[in-house]
């Protein structure tokens, strides 16, 4: 006897977020990347339309990362010394379609670069690479409130995805993003109530809910992955049930979290495996955009996505 699938019919839809603007839209990107837009739980292709496969962005920094493990450093070699070479390598050698640049050099402990330098950096990067950009602050709220508006302005009309806004610090970033036509990342500490509240606060300022990606904050394999999974699943169920304040696509910093695990540093293979397992598990939880670090992990996850989405029909 053939097994009958129990299919759920959802009232809601996850919002579609486009990263990058091409010439037709007033930007200069060669390609754009769409995430979200699904009417189904992750990968349940028979349940509802899943128009956009999970996207991968390569993470680069505006400064040479000092504390990255040997395995990661080896993968990029000398290119790590120059962020533009690093960006080129991701695109030319590893076929990146999307870059996520962390403005780590602005952090008071990592060079304390100012808004002018940050804006210049983004401007050069935009002229050097043609893929869409995700721009992440250094994590110091006061400093990010200076540099992110400068980066936003420098990338005006390029429809970047910029973050991260948090509940205690979102107003400055929201204002810049509205003025310059970007999308925002709303970060909550593995907390669905705060994720929802922050989305409301941001939309109250006038930024459309459809321009928000949720960074639910994730843990790597062995470091709370299942907790992140349950939060993402619950938010996704609410979004699909019609709660527009939770119907945002998810961005997950899988590379960053995986390489923090001590197990990832035991051997080169194990680090890559750690990143792959973390990333692919997050896809099952509903990740729409994965920020990855090791090119080999990105390649394997990308192949995995291709296989899953090839079987779509």
């Amino acid at each position: 006897m053939e097994t009958q699938l129990v299919l759920e019919k959802w009232a809601g839809v996850i919002s579609t977020l486009t990263i990058g603007a091409d010439a037709k839209e007033g930007g200069t990107r060669a390609n754009t990347v769409k995430i979200g837009g699904q009417k189904s739980l992750p990968l349940l292709f028979k349940e509802g339309d899943i128009p956009n496969p999970t996207a991968i962005a390569f993470e680069i920094w505006d400064v040479s990362p000092l504390d990255w493990p040997e395995e990661l450093v080896a993968a990029y070699g000398k290119a790590l010394d120059n962020p533009f070479d690093w960006a080129d390598k991701c695109i030319n050698e590893f076929k990146a379609k999307l870059l996520c640049v962390r403005m780590q050099g602005a952090h008071p402990d990592f060079g304390n670069k100012g808004p002018k330098e940050a804006a210049e950096f983004i401007s050069i990067l935009l002229s050097r690479v043609k893929v869409p950009l995700i721009i992440i602050g250094c994590g110091d709220d006061a400093k990010d409130n200076q540099i992110l508006p400068a980066c936003s302005e420098s990338a005006r009309n390029e429809r970047c995805l910029i973050g991260c806004a948090v509940q205690e610090n979102y107003k400055t970033l929201v204002a810049s993003i509205m003025a310059d036509g970007h999308n925002i990342i709303a970060e909550s500490p593995i907390d669905i109530n705060i994720a929802k509240q922050l989305n409301i606060l941001i939309s109250d300022m006038g930024l459309n809910l459809e321009r928000i990606a949720i960074n639910p904050t994730i843990g790597a394999l062995g470091y709370g992955l299942e907790y992140a999974y349950s939060i993402m699943e619950r938010a996704r169920l609410a979004g699909l049930s019609g709660d527009k304040t939770l119907a945002s696509p998810f961005i997950c910093f899988a590379g960053q979290e995986s390489w923090r695990a001590k197990e990832a540093r035991i051997s080169p293979e194990q680090g890559i495996i750690w990143e792959i397992i973390t990333a692919t598990s997050l896809m099952q939880a509903g990740a729409d955009l994965l920020i990855l670090r090791h090119p080999e992990a990105a390649k394997k996850v990308s192949e995995h996505i291709d296989i899953l989405f090839k079987n779509k029909s």
Partner: peptide, 13 residues
Amino acid sequence: IYCDSYLEAYRKK
């Protein structure tokens, strides 16, 4: 789902 502005969130639906 609860959030501090749940009354507003409901009305936004």
